[in-house]
Amino acid sequence: MPVTHWIYPTNEKSDYYLDNPSGDTEVSPQRLLDDIEQSPDKADPWILKTGFRMMQPGDAVWIYAADPYQYICALAQAVDIYPDGDAWYASLVWNLDATHRLMRAPIPRSEFHQIAQQAAIRADERTVEVLDGWLRSGRIRLADLEREPSSNEDARLRTMRNIVQRQGQATFRQRLLHVYDRRCAVTRESAEAVLEAAHIEPYMGPHSNRLTNGLLLRADLHTLFDLHLIGIDQDGKLVVSSRLSGSSYASLQARSLALPQRTAHRPSRRSLAAHVKLLL
Rank of each mutant, 00 (worst) to 15 (best):
T4E: 11
I7A: 00
S14W: 00
Y17R: 08
Y17M: 04
L18T: 08
G23W: 07
V27L: 11
Q30T: 15
Q30M: 14
L33Q: 11
S39E: 15
A43N: 06
I47T: 03
G51N: 03
F52C: 03
M54F: 14
V61D: 00
A66I: 05
P68K: 14
C73Q: 08
L75W: 07
A78P: 03
V79W: 01
V79A: 05
P83L: 08
D84E: 13
D84W: 09
Y89H: 04
S91M: 12
W94V: 01
N95M: 07
L96W: 09
D97A: 15
T99V: 13
H100L: 15
L102E: 03
M103E: 13
R109V: 04
F112K: 01
F112L: 06
H113N: 08
A116F: 00
A116I: 01
Q118M: 12
I121L: 07
D124T: 10
D124I: 08
R126I: 08
D132G: 13
S137V: 10
G138S: 13
I140Y: 06
R141V: 02
E146I: 13
E146Y: 15
E148Q: 14
D154P: 02
T159I: 14
R161E: 05
I163G: 03
Q165Y: 13
Q169S: 11
A170V: 11
Q174R: 14
L177W: 05
Y180P: 01
C184T: 07
C184P: 05
A185D: 02
A185R: 03
E189V: 13
A197F: 01
P202Y: 07
Y203M: 09
A219W: 10
A219F: 13
T223S: 10
L224S: 03
D226P: 02
D226E: 11
D226H: 04
D226Y: 02
H228T: 06
I230V: 06
Q234L: 12
Q234V: 12
K237N: 13
K237W: 09
V239T: 10
V240P: 00
V240R: 00
S242K: 15
L244A: 10
Y249R: 11
A250E: 13
S251T: 14
R255S: 09
A258S: 15
R262M: 14
T263A: 15
R266G: 04
P267R: 06
S271D: 13
L272I: 06
L272D: 00
A274Y: 11
A274E: 10
L279C: 03
